[in-house]
Simulated assay, not measured.
Amino acid sequence: MKSITEVSNLENKRVILRLDLNVPLKNQEIQDETRILKMLPVINFLIEKKAKIIIISHVGRPKGEIQKELSLIPICENLKSKLNKDIKLITNNLLEIKKNDLFTATDEEIIFLENIRFYKEEEANDENFSKHLASLADLYVNDAFSCSHRAHASVCKITEFLPAYAGLQLNSEVEALKKVTSEIKKPVTCIIGGSKISTKIGIIKNLIPKFDNIIIVGGMANNILEYNGHSIGKSIKEDNCKDIIDEIFKTSKKFSCSIVYPEDVAVGKNLTDASKIKSLNEIENDDLILDIGPKTIEKIKLIIERSKTLLWNGPAGYFENINFANGSFEIAKKIVEKNNNNSIYSVAGGGDTNAVLNQIGAIEKFNFVSTAGGAFLEYLEGKDLPGITALN
């Protein structure tokens, strides 16, 4: 996979830059700028190299139809102010645009194409559409790792018709994930949470042969507790998981990977309740398990202390209620402590995990925090990502 930083001369070269600027919008107002901020380095790099930049992105799921509420106008305006540059948004039918229609003024540096998912050909990975996109530029850069699990025209097929390179953020993401999946410093630990164990079984199975510890927390852990004969009251759980859990324990034994789950818990009677610490044999029928308890926290902190590499995906409890955020906060603080003395390589990902880190100002204190969602999870499962394969 070649990086755009390897290209010696980009002056006046027309570069299609595929970004993921799929930020949450409410009444055309941006609710979270995180993804925009992560894309600034590659844009600034190309500006510095005096390239002509054609930005392609999407917002939402318009399914091949123009939807005004999913226009890139607010994102374009946001970038204008951040870069202090004039940016032209092309709203004309993309299929009717020719290369000579772009950059008609000599001082134009950045052009935005309107939401690429307004065209049904995008998600169909259409060859003719991809050829047309490619005809607008001299080379292509993918800095949208979070879209790279999609076999879409602007992510995948376009690379067949232009010299293709990885962007700065995509490179960083792949390098970080390699350090927790293939180029690992041991001991290595994964903390994994979420409400459904079935959605994470692919990750768990892929990581068990490589990892020393898999710590299961959150709603997923309730299934493990019930499997081991403990009452979980009225806590969230997933049905028909016995075979999945059988497989986890069987595989972990084969590869000498320790599976860790709660030894004590914090419960409430409802989601807005105060927290009460209980041992596993004290859980009542009307209890909701909403966080891990102090014994479990100390055990996890000890494992983190002994680890040199750590991957975190999924909070330890119902952190939306501060009474049940302690487990997640304590895990985060311990990882940050290790990071501060450079004794661990830490990667976190997933919307809820990132929200926890944001709450305590820890995002910048991890080695890498992914905003890639589905692509992040599929990479951890060991799946090929079409956008990465295309660049290779």
Rank of each mutant, 00 (worst) to 15 (best):
E320H: 08
V7R: 14
N339P: 00
K185V: 13
I216E: 10
C76S: 11
A137H: 06
S258Y: 06
I245N: 03
I16V: 05
E114F: 07
E160F: 12
A151Q: 06
E121A: 04
Q67N: 10
A274T: 14
V260I: 15
E238C: 03
I73K: 15
S3D: 09
N313R: 03
N27L: 12
I116V: 11
A176G: 05
E284N: 12
I54Q: 01
I297R: 13
E123I: 06
M1T: 09
K82Y: 06
L136N: 05
L357C: 11
D101Y: 14
G350H: 13
G351K: 12
I297Y: 07
L79R: 04
L170A: 01
I116E: 06
G327N: 09
K338G: 02
S8N: 15
W312N: 00
A151V: 04
P41R: 01
D286G: 11
E6N: 13
S231P: 00
V260D: 04
N321F: 07
E160P: 11
G373L: 12
H149Q: 13
K186A: 08
I203Q: 02
G327T: 11
V188A: 11
G64M: 04
L46P: 10
S258Q: 10
V23L: 06
I216V: 09
I300D: 00
L311G: 01
L170M: 15
F368Q: 08
I259C: 13
R18P: 08
G219Q: 02
V23F: 03
K250Q: 15
V15H: 01
P24W: 00
G374L: 11
L37P: 02
K2V: 04
I208K: 05
S307A: 02
S343L: 00
T371A: 09
N323H: 13
E77R: 14
N171V: 14
K82A: 07
N281P: 08
L37A: 07
F161P: 03
V42A: 04
K68C: 09
A375Q: 14
A137R: 02
V42L: 02
I335N: 01
I289T: 00
L133H: 15
E381I: 05
D273P: 01
K178V: 02
L280T: 05
V356R: 02
N100C: 08
D352I: 07
